[in-house]
């Protein structure tokens, strides 16, 4: 836990004001901040300093964020959060598939930004050891870890308090990550009853779970609603 407190973060954006704002925001959280204003500077900073996390913009002069990220990925496995004004799904998928750990769209919510930084750092620093020892009764999806023996869910290393029903739903979806479950299916498997017009009920539970495990429930990272069909937990 303590290790995240004084982690070094590199903030890369061609807009100085934004860099400063982020720096001030994160310095208040206790991180050490390095600044860079384009991709090349970012590469220099990564080689010069010991950096645990990078916040990087996409559209920058000289070397754009995505290219810089790919170069950095060649040497280092530190978490990289892409910060971009491009908000389309295709942009997000591109960023994540090129090695980004998270994708935050501008204009961001400062609190959310801070939370995501924290979560990524925690995943990187605290759980890095745990990664190697994967136990059979543990299910892991991205930053979510389900300890089935203890019936406990950890989100980015932090324990989450779930009700019995919520736990069952989470377990079902995590064990079948990537698969879409209809409300009826979830209902019959969790409640063990025949279902009829249960959409509302299931959806309410899903929303509650989302509020507990997601940093931004409006833009969920793990538990997703497939509108008009069902629900799933993304396979990460």
């Amino acid at each position: 836990m303590d290790r995240t407190e004084n982690a070094s973060i590199l903030v890369v954006d061609d807009d100085h004001d934004i860099v400063n704002a982020i720096a001030m925001l994160l310095e208040k959280e206790g991180y050490r901040i390095y600044k860079a204003y384009n991709g090349l500077e970012a590469l220099d900073a990564v080689t010069m300093y010991d950096i645990q996390l990078i916040l990087i913009d996409v559209m920058m002069p000289k070397l754009d964020g995505l290219s810089a990220m790919m170069r950095i990925r060649e040497k280092k496995n530190i978490p990289i959060i892409v910060l971009s004004a491009k908000s389309e799904d295709s942009d997000k998928i591109l960023g994540l598939s090129m090695g980004a750990d998270d994708y935050i769209t501008k204009p961001y919510n400062p609190a959310e930004l801070a939370a995501r930084v924290r979560a990524s750092l925690r995943r990187y620093l605290s759980l890095g050891a745990a990664d190697s020892a994967v136990r059979s009764d543990t299910v892991k999806v991205g930053g979510l870890v389900l300890d089935k023996a203890a019936r406990q869910l950890y989100a980015d290393g932090e324990p989450v308090r779930l009700t019995a029903t919520e736990y069952k739903i989470t377990e079902l979806l995590m064990e079948n990550a990537g698969r879409v479950f209809s409300a009826e299916e979830i209902y019959s498997r969790v409640w063990n009853e025949d279902s009829f017009s249960v959409e509302n009920t299931v959806m309410v539970h899903i929303r509650h779970i989302r509020e507990k495990i997601e940093i931004n429930p409006g833009d969920p990272r793990y538990l997703k609603v497939v509108w008009g069909i069902g629900y799933k937990i993304e396979k990460l």
């Binding site: 409300a183 299931v202 959806m203 509108w227 008009g228 069909i229 069902g230």
Partner: peptide, 17 residues
């Protein structure tokens, strides 16, 4: 292909609060 009935339920559940 999606189901408007399911979608309605999901929206109502989502907006319950």
């Amino acid at each position: 292909r999606i189901d408007a009935v399911i979608l309605t339920g999901q929206v109502l559940g989502d907006m319950e609060d």
